[in-house]
């Protein structure tokens, strides 16, 4: 990248505190496709000049998949270790690149001693647009393009965030089309509840195929996502349907970064 991504340890050494901590998450850190989204979130933060930092190697899994899989012990061990790190750095505000990290830190950490203002990266983008700090200019034009947004369960139904990602798409002057099942009726991509890490049970169809068929029915040029796990499921679905040449699956952060030529 053209700029250096600051870590908390570095800032601390300089006696500085960031405005916001960017919680990258496991997928954003290790998954090749999600790493691109992570870099785009950093580019946006860098572009608007927000003072931010990441935890880098001090970050660890929030414990979300362990908790959804029923291992409360492991979840709380992870949570308490992370809270110790976060509180040690006196963190006040966190932006996450993943709705699962967002939900866990926002809702499940306070009861274990970790209270922070937590937002998802689509909410950050919405705020920046509202404040006039972020527009859609200087980059790729999405004008008139058909875009459909897939609501991540832990952002939408889980936490009632439906407008932020759509706001980020509205500024593109694109043609926003909704799937039949959207917002509070949105259909899961099939990855939640620790399904990402196992083979599905016996059935007639994979959930991501059911979802991608619905997405493709809107005849989109772009399927927008807001979660690295949805990204995997949707991308796989588009590939399986042999549509990956015509239809792109992009995260809201990637779309924003492209539109601004970042």
């Amino acid at each position: 990248m053209e700029f250096k991504v600051p870590t908390m340890a570095q800032l601390m050494a300089m006696g500085e505190e960031p405005e916001i901590l960017f919680w990258v998450g496991c997928a954003g850190s290790y998954d090749e496709r999600a790493q691109k989204i992570t870099r785009d979130i950093c580019k946006i933060l860098h572009h608007v000049g927000i003072k931010y930092a990441v935890l880098g190697t001090e970050e660890s899994c929030t414990g979300d998949p362990a908790k959804r899989a029923g291992n409360e012990f492991l979840f709380q061990m992870q949570a308490m270790t992370n809270i110790e790190v976060l509180n040690g750095y006196n963190i006040k505000k966190i932006v996450t690149g993943c709705p699962h990290c967002f939900n866990t830190i926002k809702n499940e950490y306070p009861g274990l001693g970790g209270s922070y203002e937590v937002i998802h990266h689509t909410q950050l983008i919405q705020d920046l647009i509202n404040e006039g700090k972020l527009k859609a200019e200087g980059g790729e034009s999405f004008k008139g393009k058909k875009i459909t947004f897939h609501d991540p369960c832990y952002l939408g139904r889980g936490n009632g965030v439906y407008e932020a990602p759509r706001k980020a798409l509205e500024v593109l002057d694109a043609q926003l089309v909704e799937m039949k099942r959207c917002k509070s009726n949105g259909l899961c991509c099939g990855a939640g509840g620790a399904q990402m890490f196992k083979e599905p049970e016996k059935g007639t169809k994979d959930i991501n195929i059911e979802r991608i068929e619905e997405a493709l029915a809107t005849e989109p040029q772009v399927i927008a996502a807001g979660c690295p796990f949805c990204m995997t499921m949707l991308s796989d679905g588009v590939k399986l349907k042999d549509k990956d040449q015509e239809v792109k699956v992009l995260d809201i952060a990637e779309i924003t970064a492209r539109a601004n030529g970042l």
Binding site: C26, S29, Y30, Q35, T38, R39, V54, T57, C61, G63
Partner: peptide, 21 residues
């Protein structure tokens, strides 16, 4: 998650590698 702090088998030391690309 228990051993590597991530649901996949990656080294915690590689967690910031994305920033190098």
């Amino acid at each position: 998650v228990e051993n590597n702090g991530a649901p996949w088998k990656y080294s915690p030391a590689d967690r910031l590698n994305w920033a190098e690309q």
